[in-house]
Design a protein around this nucleic acid. Structure first.
Lengths: 197, 197
DNA sequence: TTCTTGTACGAACGTTCGTGCGTGAAATGG
DNA sequence: CCATTTCACGCACGAACGTTCGTACAAGAA
């Protein structure tokens, strides 16, 4: 065999499971042998799809990104730019975390904490994804202010930072303490930072 | 040999290094062989201090907790209970993260994210440590309100949740994006939530 | 001195890791 | 129908993992 298997459906099935495992045990704890056994494949057969563990990790990040976009971002783009879209982004994110779209909570919260001090291509891919998400929230906040939906003295970058902080904290607390009320706290915090609808 | 070595100084040296490695590579990525090589010890010699990897992980958590108390909590207890103590706790935490007391940023941010979906004694120890920290912040916030240093309509539990969120977010952003300004954002956010000094 | 105790060591255990290679079955196309 | 390609497999590899074991050596007690 010179190339890689072309069966995109099998590939996606593998990567979907990989993202679930990684959200629980980390991208390093995601082992090829265990993933193959889980899916009823041979280790070497699964390995052939990716060619290296790092490539599997990068492909898993791409799949997780696509799922995140489908679950959180795309549905929010249906709303007009500005405050209503910002609200949707926050609500969708909290729902995405709360519904455990990934078995171990937010995939990126887990992967970012794992790789934030380990240089390499995996970290680079994760920082890019995080930057895109932050940029989306920040720009949407800017739009909301430009439309007069936020007080003129609002600092959009600062507000976006604080809103993201609430989301992350809810995800972390709900996982570590089995405490679903953390999501209520985050919603309360976010609503208090935004004008009453 | 029936028991474990009694050399507490060597043990603490090992555990201090272990906490640094774990803050970067995780408590699972912390391997006995690598730790021993790092310190110029034999693998079996180091192993003898703990008897199992899980015991090493638990001892590392205890050491990290002691360091955290020294760096963040104890200096804040010098201030009178209430708002001034709360401010010190927040400032000390941000300084502790910013100064990289642990090489990979906040030890607990890293370890919590790693083990929040893996049942066992390690997770239990981490949830206890996190609960103690949250309780301290929450109770200090309660005291501040009881002394009239916070508006009467303040919800102390909610405020503590939000303040912790800012700390976590600053640590995460500074690590993932090499962005030291995240600490400034967190200080701004925290100050805005508290009465002007 | 001899015996005991505590400590660190090297070597090896079995397991799992990521990674290659060669083979055979299934699918494809002329 | 046969030739070719595609793909998943079994198997093996070297390295690293946590762990166990027997040993060497220093210090103290008898």
């Amino acid at each position: 065999m010179v190339g890689r298997p072309q069966n995109d459906q099998a590939r996606q099935t593998i990567l979907r499971r990989a993202a679930d495992i990684a959200s629980q045990d980390g991208l390093e704890g995601l082992s090829i042998g265990r993933l193959a056994t889980d899916l009823g494949l041979s280790k070497s057969g699964l390995f052939g799809y990716f060619g290296s563990k790092e490539e599997l990790q990068l492909a898993t990040i791409r799949t997780a990104t696509a799922i995140f976009l489908d679950e959180v971002v795309k549905p929010a783009l249906a709303a007009p730019p500005g405050l209503s879209r910002l609200r949707l982004l926050l609500d969708n994110w909290l729902s995405y975390s709360e519904r455990r779209v990934f078995a171990g909570g937010c995939f990126f919260a887990s992967a970012n904490a794992e790789f934030d001090a380990r240089p390499g291509r995996v970290r680079d891919a994760l920082t890019t994804a995080a930057r895109d998400w932050n940029r989306l929230l920040t720009e949407t906040t800017h739009e909301a202010r430009a439309r007069g939906e936020l007080p003129a003295e609002t600092d959009p970058d600062q507000l976006a930072f604080e809103l993201v902080a609430f989301l992350q904290a809810a995800n972390a607390a709900s996982l570590l303490h089995d405490d679903p009320t953390a999501y209520h706290r985050a919603r309360t915090a976010a609503h208090a930072r935004l004008p009453t609808p």
